[in-house]
Design a protein around this nucleic acid. Structure first.
Length: 627
RNA sequence: GGGUCAGUAGCUCAGCAUGGAUAGAGUGUUGGACUUCUAAUCCAAUGGUCGUGGGAUCGAAGCCCUCCUGACCCA
């Protein structure tokens, strides 16, 4: 809390000055400077122009004069700049000491914005009929990173993963296994890959020529709604087998969950019926008597055109997707009574137990996942649906915060699509499970790992394959996570296989490299870094800039968490690494004649390591000392 | 027909919430730096009518409106 404290102090004093001048309270910003204009800047002079009718510079001079009395031994100078900015200068030695000491504490960066409140975040939620592909990865990584961020600002976070084990896509698989004779125990192939690449695609292709199959699928869908049917049991067996494979991929990506919500159980619990009654009572849905939607129940919505009100129950009595989505949303928000008990599904890679919902009474229900705040990570193609849900749940309780965290989907570049022998168009193509136009996450990771391994082998011919392989795996996962998170959520990612294997420039490898270099210095130093050093010795621009960015860690976390913008952390890591590499190239730490300087710089290197490690862990990346 | 998102350097992207200092990175191209704590690095050069046109403002890449292009969604 170093830079934060300075900012708060300055803000407060400027507010006092504004009051002294009998001016209305205004919103101004106090931020760390970006360029070489002191340490902290304030823009208040610009905002006062319309009240004082003077030039910004004159106002800055006035405020600077009035600020003199607030200066102390930490904030030592205020300087009005001809452009109008107010620049604040800090006692370097004291600042260095404060930041370097603070950054080595275990809780560095931890703040209490969440105040221990519960929050749900749902992500991953992949249909259990195929392997996880690169498009799903964006969802997983965004969701997992946000969960880590929210924990850091002291929310009690529960991560949910919704498994649609009774929808169309699962029914398609059952059709394949039951009617088309696909082997349930394929040899030489991962089960999720086999189901997604072979059974699912082949089955859906057959529908064109065999309409009878569609009728069978319809029957299967209805059977899936019955808890005790043999189809339900069979589907359960298949989907769990796929789900387990998918979870392995998630864990490989360093993501984990608190609870699985199976759609089948939401259906079997009968929750939908009570939700339907409630919606009816509250007059949020209506029965259409005439027109093309005659016989349907419709959701009223103010979104878009009124003509586009959403059907929730078809005229044949079956519920549409939105019915299940609304039910799930209301459960997440605790608006309907929780009918579930919870049992252990599996132990995860990080030692966290993954629970699943169950309707079986012999398990307890003393876990509670519903809360007033919930975040749903789904790509922006679902915006329309999510907006309707958000609008609906607000009608139940104004205090609810239902956030759709949306991001643009990933497409395949034309080159990659061509290489895969997929339909070739002169533009990027959408990933589609049905068309098989996707890149399996594990396959891509394997390629990336292989690539990194080749380079690592040349670098370290003395290391054994086991160590190298572990290193390459860690770096491959880091790289993929970083690539997914550094781009703004609103930007479409066009995935190109060849480009993605490139690891130069702004990549996880660059950041990991800086970390490894720093670790190496500490390793080779004969003394351990201590805080009993002469802080004023750290006075060149490289040292200043590195210390400054370390001091901004908390601001960065708050910024990222409040805006649900994980890329801010990625940018921060990159900047931290850049400034360290620059420091490294221009300053020697070890073997200096001046041992006091070595001590001070060791202390800085140590702080850098702590801060970067912490920031990387927010991104789900394990910092490596070897590279 | 209705809605959402995007458009900034050759390419990929920051910056936009909360207007203010010389619009920043990576990559590409060109040059330079390993006898040194790791060169998967660093330093320098190159490269921009911030999609178009208007508006409000002392001041716009950012705010408001128009249009164009592309992606997606609903019907």
């Amino acid at each position: 809390m170093v830079t934060n404290i300075l900012i708060n102090e300055i803000s407060l004093n400027i507010k006092k000055i504004i009051m002294e001048l009998n001016l209305p309270s205004i919103k101004f910003t106090v931020e760390p400077t970006r360029s070489n204009f002191g340490y902290i800047m304030c823009n208040v002079s610009f905002l006062l122009v319309k009240y004082l009718h003077k030039k910004p510079f004159e106002i800055a001079q006035l405020i600077a004069k009035k600020y003199q009395k607030f200066l102390n031994d930490l904030i030592i100078k205020i300087e009005p700049h001809p452009t109008g900015y107010l620049n604040f200068f800090i006692n370097d030695s004291k600042l260095n000491e404060l930041i370097l000491k603070k950054s080595c504490s275990i809780n560095y960066g931890k703040t209490n914005i969440g105040n221990g409140a519960n929050i749900n975040i749902e992500h991953t939620s992949i249909n259990p009929n195929k392997p996880i592909h690169i498009g799903h990865v964006r969802n997983i990584i965004i969701g997992d990173t946000i969960a880590r961020l929210l924990k850091k600002i002291n929310y009690n976070v529960n991560v949910l993963n919704y498994v649609d084990d009774s929808g169309l896509q699962v029914a398609d698989l059952i059709v394949g296994f039951k009617c088309l004779g696909f082997n349930k125990n394929p040899k030489n192939s991962r089960f999720d890959v086999y189901c997604g690449n072979v059974v699912y695609i082949k089955t859906t292709e057959k529908y064109k020529n065999d309409p009878n199959l569609l009728k069978i699928r319809q029957n299967i869908l209805q059977e899936l709604e019955r808890k005790q049917s043999s189809t339900t049991k069979f589907a359960n067996e298949i989907t769990k087998k796929i789900l387990n494979k998918q979870l392995e991929t998630c864990w490989r990506l360093n993501s984990s969950y608190d609870c699985l919500n199976f759609e089948s159980q939401i259906i079997h619990s009968g929750l939908w019926k009570s939700v339907f009654n409630k919606l009816q009572e509250m007059k949020l849905i209506y029965y259409e008597q005439k027109g093309k939607n005659a016989g349907c129940w419709i959701v009223k919505t103010r979104i878009g055109n009124h003509k586009n009100d959403k059907i929730i129950i078809r005229s044949d009595g079956t519920a549409t997707y939105i019915a299940k989505d609304i039910t799930y949303a209301l459960w997440k928000l605790g608006i309907i009574k929780d009918p579930f008990n919870y049992k252990k599904y599996i132990m995860q890679h990080d030692g966290k137990i993954l629970l699943e919902t169950t309707l079986d009474d012999k398990y307890s229900n003393n876990v509670k996942f519903s809360t007033r705040k919930t975040i749903t990570v789904i790509d922006s193609r679902q915006s329309y649906l999510q907006n309707i849900i958000s609008e609906l749940v607000k009608k139940f309780d104004q205090q609810i915060i239902y956030t759709h965290l949306k991001y643009e989907a990933i497409k395949l570049s034309q080159d990659t699509a061509k290489e895969l022998g997929l339909v070739y168009e002169n533009k990027p193509i959408q990933m589609s499970g049905r068309k098989g136009t996707y890149i399996i996450a594990d396959y891509f990771l394997d390629m990336l790992k292989y690539n990194i391994l080749q380079k690592a082998k040349k670098r370290y011919n003395n290391l054994d394959m086991g160590t190298l392989s572990k290193l390459a795996e860690n770096l491959a996962v880091s790289t993929l996570r970083y690539e997914m998170i550094k781009i703004d959520l609103s930007k479409m990612i066009v995935f190109d296989f060849k480009e993605s294997l490139d690891v130069d420039g702004n990549t996880a490898l660059y950041i990991q490299y800086a970390y490894a270099r720093a670790s190496r210095i500490l390793e080779k130093a004969k003394i351990k870094p201590s805080f009993d050093v002469e802080y004023e010795l750290l006075d060149n621009q490289y040292e200043h800039e590195l210390i400054k960015i370390i001091g901004e860690y908390e601001i960065c976390i708050c910024d990222a968490a409040i805006n649900l913008a994980p890329k801010i952390i990625a940018t921060y890591c990159y900047k931290l690494a850049t400034l360290f590499n620059s420091f490294y190239e221009h300053n020697t730490v070890l073997n200096l004649k001046n041992t006091q300087l070595t001590n001070a710089r060791l202390c800085l290197v140590n702080s850098f390591i702590f801060t970067l490690q912490s920031a990387l862990s927010l991104l789900g990346m394990k910092a490596t000392t070897l590279l």
